[in-house]
Amino acid sequence: METIEQRACKTELSSNDKTVLDFILKNKKQACFLTSNEIAERLGVSASTVIRLSKKLGFDNFTTFKKAFQREQAEREPDCIPLEIPYEKIKQYENLTDSELILAVRQNTLANIKKDISNESNATFIESAEIISKAKRVYIVGFRTCYGFAFSFGIMLSCIRPGVLVIGNQQPLVDCLIDLDAEDVMIAISFKRYSSDAIFAVEMAKDAGCKVIAMTDSYTAPIAQGAEKVIVNSIDNVSFFNSYTSFIMNMETITALVSKRNKELNEGRLMKMEDYLERTGQY
């Protein structure tokens, strides 16, 4: 199959076409998950210009172009960064004093947050919140460490909307996801080294026509392929485990946006919950 670059070489392009194509090729990892409107907004051109380019390159529409581009990126660059095994990462800080290690961890955490604040588009969060708010049910999937985050995310979203289900450790995956349909949304959480269960859960969601919001560490991560929205979280750490502070920030951002969209439902639901929580003390 011809690459995007090969197709472009054979196509007569206008100056606007070249502007869009140049942006896409220089920002491949991110651009292959942006909508035509998002690309147009960043470049100051019309969405029709972006769509027209995809047709000039030989695709039926922009959606077909985007899927082909995602496949191309996944095949070309599955992940060029060597994977460090946890016990090997310990060597990075074995010669640091305790005070130096504390400082290194804090500086790393702040760097991850700053990186994600500057890299992620607000539109991705806003559109993800819209999808979650309108979905019939919300399935949150995470395994091992990610199950803890999925569980917390589930509690937060359950406070502001019904139909939130958390799927994770030691649960029968197929049984829990067999009723997925096109009106649902799946929030899939997985970071290097990617969980095979999370990947399979996303496959089930795609088969059901269910929209997927992938929260991961790379646009080329397995759960990102074909996802409706991808939220990339920086997880670099000086210690042996991934850093999840930036992910928690992004999780809280989505929760706040969803809450804003369901104000009346939120108030009634939270007041009812508060009554029962006071009676049981199960805070």
Rank of each mutant, 00 (worst) to 15 (best):
Phe69Val: 13
Glu278Cys: 04
Val138Met: 08
Glu228Trp: 10
Arg42Tyr: 10
Lys55Gln: 12
Pro172Ala: 07
Asn112Met: 00
Met204Phe: 10
Met271Lys: 12
Ser246His: 01
Ala129Leu: 04
Asn108Trp: 00
Asn108Ile: 02
Ser190His: 01
Ala68Cys: 04
Ala227Pro: 06
Glu127Asp: 10
Leu270Glu: 14
Asn119Ile: 06
Lys272Ala: 08
Phe33Met: 15
Ala224Glu: 07
Thr220Tyr: 15
Lys29Val: 07
Lys263Thr: 11
Met215Leu: 15
Lys263Met: 06
Ile131Glu: 08
Leu25Gln: 12
Ile51His: 06
Asn242Trp: 04
Ile132Val: 15
Val50Tyr: 02
Leu96Cys: 01
Arg193Ser: 07
Thr11Gln: 01
Glu120Lys: 03
Thr11His: 01
Tyr93Asn: 07
Phe69Gln: 11
Gly148Arg: 02
Asn262Ala: 13
Ile4Cys: 04
Asp79Arg: 11
Arg137Lys: 15
Ala182Lys: 09
Ile102Ser: 05
Thr109Cys: 09
Ser46Asp: 08
Ala129Val: 03
Lys211Cys: 08
Ala123Trp: 11
Ala68Gly: 09
Leu103Ile: 07
Thr216His: 08
Asp116Trp: 00
Val166Asn: 12
Thr245Val: 14
Asn242Phe: 04
Thr220Glu: 13
Ile189Ala: 02
Ala256Phe: 06
Pro78Asp: 06
Ser15Thr: 12
Leu101Cys: 03
Cys176Met: 12
Thr280Met: 03
Glu252Arg: 15
Gln225Cys: 15
Tyr219Thr: 00
Ser196Lys: 12
Val138Asp: 02
Asn122Pro: 09
Thr3Gln: 08
Leu110Cys: 11
Ser243Met: 05
Gln30Lys: 15
Thr49Trp: 05
Ser158Thr: 09
Asp184Ser: 09
Ile51Gln: 10
Ala205Pro: 02
Ile126Phe: 09
Asn169Ser: 14
Leu277Asn: 04
Met249Ser: 05
Leu101Phe: 05
Gly209Pro: 00
Asn16Gln: 09
Val138Asn: 05
Ser15Asp: 10
Asn112Asp: 00
Lys29Trp: 11
Ser118Leu: 14
